[in-house]
Design a binder for these strands. Structure first.
Length: 304
DNA sequence: CTCGATCCCTGGACGC
DNA sequence: TGCGTCCAGGGATCGA
């Protein structure tokens, strides 16, 4: 679940808690979500965490220079994506470790930075300044920093559905399923509209909605819908302000029409069928027969 | 360029 | 109480 507001919350907490600390060791358990585990063991010990930043849904733990660091450009960094269930926080060594603790980085103050991720949809990588630069280039606009003209240029002439565009990290970095649906509801735009079909005033509303929704969510330290906790182990509160996400069948906060859930761009999408009019040609009432193929495959596998 | 399908993974919900 | 099944979701990847 961690999207921009949740990652921002964790990054701010880590900025407070671990900047200035030096990593003194590396302990790895499962490593299939790490680009190159050996790189962590080789490069992390002895490095100081000099800053923690958010970049889209990634966190960058910027590291002090090593003797082999390139002098110019980006600093080396530990890059962390929380995936669906990732948690990153410093804890006393005496705290019992949670199940699914896969990375432990002892710090020079006696605590250790622990990465816990039951589903391992996260990602972690040690990146030299150069590698980091090329990694960062693949991401789109920051929704909180982009100008309207940039946003319009990146979405207003694309033929993909607006839902897909908002979720595409190479278009906007940091927006996920929750904040896409919340922003589209606020802007009164149906998720299945094509980007290129949106009128200027719709794009303008969406641009504003995105920023307002994200700002408020950051102020409330994100949404804790499954079990998201920030770097201090505290849940967010924005889930209490969701207008559509997870509210199928409940009354729209504007017009009382029951919220509906459909699948757009392969994602569950919550919206108000009255406030957010479907585009022409979009067939209503679809609950796609997903998983039919998977069921078949599983049945076949069982027989073997 | 855009689409859907598939895979990765685990825990929680639900049905029996 | 316990087992099986479905499902959630971000992102990579592949074929249409």
């Amino acid at each position: 679940m961690p999207e921009l507001p949740e990652v921002e919350t964790v990054a701010r907490g880590l900025q407070r808690e671990v900047v200035g600390r030096t990593i003194v060791g590396v302990t790895l358990r499962k490593t299939d979500f790490i680009d190159d585990p050996a790189e962590l063991e080789e490069h992390l010990p002895g490095r100081k965490i000099v800053a923690v930043e958010r970049y889209g849904k990634f966190m960058l733990l910027r590291l002090s220079a090593s003797d082999v660091s390139t002098a110019n450009g980006e600093q080396d960094a530990l890059m962390v994506h929380l995936g669906m269930t990732g948690m990153l926080r410093p804890q006393a060594v005496s705290e019992p470790q949670l199940k699914h603790t896969h990375v432990v980085l002892p710090l020079d103050d006696g605590r250790e930075l622990r990465y816990v991720d039951p589903r391992r949809f996260g990602r972690m990588a040690y990146l030299s300044g150069e590698a980091l630069q090329s990694e960062l280039r693949r991401h789109g606009l920051d929704p909180l920093e982009m100008r309207f003209e940039e946003f319009a240029a990146n979405t207003g002439k694309r033929r993909a559905r607006i839902k897909a565009l908002l979720l595409d990290q190479s278009v906007l970095r940091g927006v996920g399923n929750i904040y896409t649906d919340e922003s589209l509801w606020k802007a009164k735009i149906h998720p299945a509209h094509l980007g290129a079909r949106l009128k200027p005033d719709q794009l303008r509303r969406l641009y504003g909605a995105l920023q307002q929704v994200l700002q408020k969510a950051i102020a409330l330290r994100g949404s804790s819908i499954s079990d998201f906790l920030d770097a201090e182990g505290v849940p967010g509160e924005y889930q209490q302000h969701h207008r559509v996400y997870g509210r199928e069948g409940k009354a729209c906060r504007r017009c009382k029409t029951p919220i509906r859930r459909i699948v757009v761009a392969g994602r569950s999408s919550y919206f108000c069928p009255n406030c957010q009019k479907a585009p022409r040609g979009w067939k209503k009432s679809k609950r796609p027969p997903r998983f039919a193929a998977r069921r078949k495959r599983k049945a076949a596998a069982t027989k073997l």
